[in-house]
């Protein structure tokens, strides 16, 4: 039980929690407290120092939107954003109730009456915007992975194909999302025409831009991982006369899983970074648009609210990275390898 819990914590990256577990079971308390001080105390101290420096530095800079926000103002705006979210939800609830009541009365008078149910069209809250951003980045990332992994595998197996696509990869890899976006916007506008679109155009544009930028790390890492598989493992497959697909499925993919996941992790990180820029320009209602809108709004709270978004972007990015890291550890056959 205890070992399983510790394994789970290790897998999910909550290493700092392990001393607490061991402490709870009375496993050499002194050593555990030392571990705890090292794993929790040191980072905590660094954060406090950072907050202090931030607080002192921010007070010295005055912009046209007022003083640069310090930690206290940012915390204030965080609570405001949370409150706004709940207020908006209450308003939505009230709207739905009003509508239901109205429709019920209508139906009472005349059972055949046409009742219309309109969706609530209030503004997105900060939390809605986080979810939109997450959905967008996942769609882009998923598209990128579906394209990059198979191409990477085939390119890793064939030197000819690899040298064919390598220059293309090298040329497109450094391109900024901001350069892609206008082209993607025009192409999406031209091709994605429908009276009743399932997704908003801004969403599709942002997702595709994310895809274009997060394709490359997975592609390169997969290709390198596949091409560096021990030749003898491939020879074993040849002796066993496994066909091409079985070889890929039974030998190539398991052998290169660690590298594929390394690529996926970098891709997701890049995708998340690119997404904010894409959303700003494409006006996809996610965190990028939030930042842009607050900037345009230019009230005295704007900078604090943008800072909340900055921290949120950072924390969400960190969580995403941790999740992929857990997957990477879980799928990697070499459980002892240190993966950071």
């Amino acid at each position: 039980m205890k070992d399983k819990l510790i394994y789970f914590l290790e897998l999910t990256g909550f290493n700092w929690f392990i001393p607490l577990v061991k402490l709870g079971t009375g496993d050499s308390p002194k050593a555990q407290l030392q571990d705890l001080a090292k794993m929790v105390g040191v980072p905590l101290f660094a954060i406090v120092v950072f907050l202090l420096l931030w607080h002192m530095g921010a007070a010295k800079i005055i912009t046209s939107l007022g003083q640069v926000p310090g930690p206290t103002q940012v915390w204030e705006q965080t609570t405001v954003l949370v409150d706004e979210h709940y207020e908006e939800r209450e308003r939505e609830q009230a709207f739905i109730e009003r509508q239901e009541k109205r429709n019920a009365i209508k139906l009472e008078k005349n059972p055949d009456a046409d009742v219309t149910i309109r969706p609530y069209t209030g503004k997105e809250t900060f939390f809605d915007q986080i979810l939109t951003s997450l959905a967008t980045v996942f769609v882009g990332f998923l598209l990128a992975s579906v394209i990059a992994i198979p191409i990477g595998i085939v390119a890793g197996l064939s030197n000819t194909l690899y040298s064919a696509i390598n220059p293309l990869i090298q040329i497109f890899k450094p391109v900024s999302p901001l350069a892609w976006l206008p082209i993607v916007t025009m192409v999406v506008s031209a091709l994605y025409v429908s009276d009743n679109p399932l997704f908003a155009k801004s969403f599709v544009t942002s997702a595709i831009t994310v895809m274009l930028c997060s394709l490359w790390p997975t592609l390169i890492n997969t290709a390198v991982g596949v091409s560096s598989i021990d030749k003898d493992l491939i020879n074993v497959a040849r002796v066993l006369r496994l066909n091409y697909l079985t070889t890929i499925y039974k030998v190539v993919i398991p052998a290169s899983i660690p590298m594929i996941f390394t690529g996926l992790r970098i891709s997701l990180g890049i995708g998340w970074m690119v997404l904010i820029a894409a959303e700003m320009l494409a006006q996809n209602p996610g965190l990028g648009k939030f930042v842009w809108d607050e900037f345009q709004n230019g009230s005295s709270e704007s900078l604090s609210r943008i800072m909340v978004a900055v921290l949120t972007i950072g924390i969400v990015g960190f969580i995403l990275d941790r999740i992929t890291l857990s997957f990477q550890k879980f799928f990697s056959y070499d459980k002892n390898a240190t993966i950071r």
Partner: peptide, 8 residues
């Protein structure tokens, strides 16, 4: 020579 077992 190097056993070449599938490590997974």
């Amino acid at each position: 020579q190097n056993h070449s077992l599938f490590p997974w």
